[in-house]
Design a protein around this nucleic acid. Structure first.
Lengths: 218, 218
DNA sequence: GGATGTGAATGCATTCACAGCA
DNA sequence: TGCTGTGAATGCATTCACATCC
C-alpha cells in the first residue's frame, strides 16, 4: 500500500495501539480482538481493523490478533524495532529532564551527545555525557551516524540551531521550542509545545467534553 | 455557535494562530490577512477564515484582522485571558523542568503547589515552593481554588494519583504519563507522551514527508 | 460462533467561489 | 481593489455491514 493513502490520525493511533498492547502483554494477555483493543482506547472496532489493515493482514479470523506478533509488527512499522542514536541540543532544565527520561530508552532511543551554545555549560558533564559546543554538531553527527535530534533551546535560538542540525545532516527534529521551524522537505519536524497543550486543556475545560489525549492531523 | 460543531483540528489551529500572531506583533505588524497568517503556518486562507468564523466575526473586509484584537479574542476563546492556578504532582526530573518552564507563566499558568508521593522528597523546596505530601492534595486544591493539575509521575502511579486529583475536585489534567487515564466525563485529560512523539517522528522519517507539528483529532 | 478484512455508505473537515463590505 | 464570511462542492476519514475464514 502507498504511504500517502494512510490517514495521519491513523498513524498516531498506531502508537496508541502499541502502547496499549504492551500493557495487555504485561497482563499476560496473548490474544486480543479489535473490539477489546478499541474499547481500551475509546475507538470503534472497525477503526482498529481499518487502521491495521492499512499496513497488512495481522489478524486471524475467529481469533483476533496475537499480542506479541502485533507488537513486533507495529514496532517495525513505526521504526522502533531498532536502536536510534539521538542527539540533544540545549542543556537547560528541559534538556536535562529529557536526557534522564526513561521512556525514550524503553523505545530504543539512545541519547549519545548533548550540545549547548552557552560556553559556560560546555565541558560540564550530565550523567555519562559531556556537554559539547554547538560548533561540534556536524563532526559528531557524522562520527556517530546520528539522524535524529531533540531541540530544547529557547525560542529565539531554535531556528538557527535547526539550520545547523540540517546542515550537519540531521533528518528528523523533535522540537520543543514554540515556533514553526523552517526546514527542507526531506527533514521531518515533530513539535511539542508544552504551553500550547495546557492552553488546549484550558479550552476544553470550558466545554462539556470527555476527550482524551493530544493527537494528529497534518 | 454551538461548541460541538467546531472541528477538533480547528481548536488546535487556534493555538497556532495565537502563537503566530504574537510573533507578528513582536515584528510590529498591526494588521494581517488570512492569507498571510495561513502562509506562515502552512494553512490555506480559507482554512484560517473558516476556523476564526466558528467563533465570531473578527475581521474587517478589505483590511484583514487587527493583530492586537485577534490576540485578545483568541486568548479569551482559549481561556488564557486570565490567570490559572496549577498544581504539579511529581517532583522528579520532568516535574522540576515543568516547574521551571517559562512558557507556562507567559500564558498565565501559575504553578502554586507541588506534590510527591515519595516521603523523602516531601518538605524539600524547589524554587519558592515546598514539596507537599500527596495526602494534602484535597486540602490545597480547595484552599487555593485550583482546577488544573499537571501529572508528572511514573506510569504505575498515574491512575491512582489521577483518582486523587479527581476526588479533590480537579477538572483538567495535563498528563505526562504514557497511559490512558480513566476519569469521569466532567474531567478533561490532555496527554503528552514524549516517547510517542519521538516514535511518530521515526515513522515519518521513513516517508517522503514535509509535515510539521503534532496536533489534533479526538 | 467469533473474529477479520474490506467495499460501500456515511459523516466530517477542507476548499472553492462568490456576494458583500471598506 | 482587497479582503472577509459563508453556502455549496469536494475530498478525506470513519463507520457499516457482510463475505470470508478458523
Amino acid at each position: 500500500m502507498r504511504n500517502d493513502e494512510i490517514p495521519n490520525p491513523a498513524v498516531y493511533r498506531l502508537s496508541f495501539y502499541l502502547r496499549q498492547l504492551e500493557s495487555f502483554r504485561r497482563g499476560d494477555r496473548h490474544t486480543i480482538s479489535s473490539k477489546q483493543l478499541g474499547e481500551a482506547l475509546g475507538y470503534s472496532d472497525a477503526q482498529v481493523r481499518k487502521d491495521l489493515a492499512y499496513f497488512g493482514q495481522f489478524g486471524h479470523p475467529g481469533i483476533g490478533y496475537r499480542v506479541d506478533d502485533l507488537i513486533q509488527q507495529l514496532k517495525k512499522i513505526l521504526g522502533t524495532d531498532k536502536i536510534w542514536n539521538v542527539l540533544l541540543v540545549g542543556a537547560g532544565n528541559l534538556g536535562r529532564a529529557l536526557l534522564a527520561y526513561k521512556g525514550f530508552v524503553r523505545k530504543g532511543f539512545r541519547m549519545v551527545a548533548i550540545f549547548d551554545t552557552d560556553a559556560n555549560k560546555v565541558g560540564r558533564k550530565i550523567g555519562e555525557l559531556q556537554i559539547r559546543s554547538d560548533q561540534d554538531i556536524a563532526t559528531v553527527v557524522t562520527e556517530l551516524q546520528i539522524r535524529v535530534a531533540m531541540l530544547a533551546v529557547p525560542v529565539e535560538a531554535a531556528q538557527s540551531v535547526a539550520d545547523q542540525l540540517v546542515g550537519a545532516g540531521i533528518k528528523g527534529i523533535l522540537n520543543f521550542a514554540p515556533v514553526a521551524l523552517n526546514v527542507p522537505a526531506d527533514v521531518v519536524v515533530q513539535s511539542v509545545d508544552l504551553a500550547l497543550q495546557l492552553e488546549q486543556l484550558s479550552f476544553r475545560m470550558s466545554l462539556g467534553e470527555t476527550s482524551q489525549d493530544g493527537a494528529p492531523s497534518l
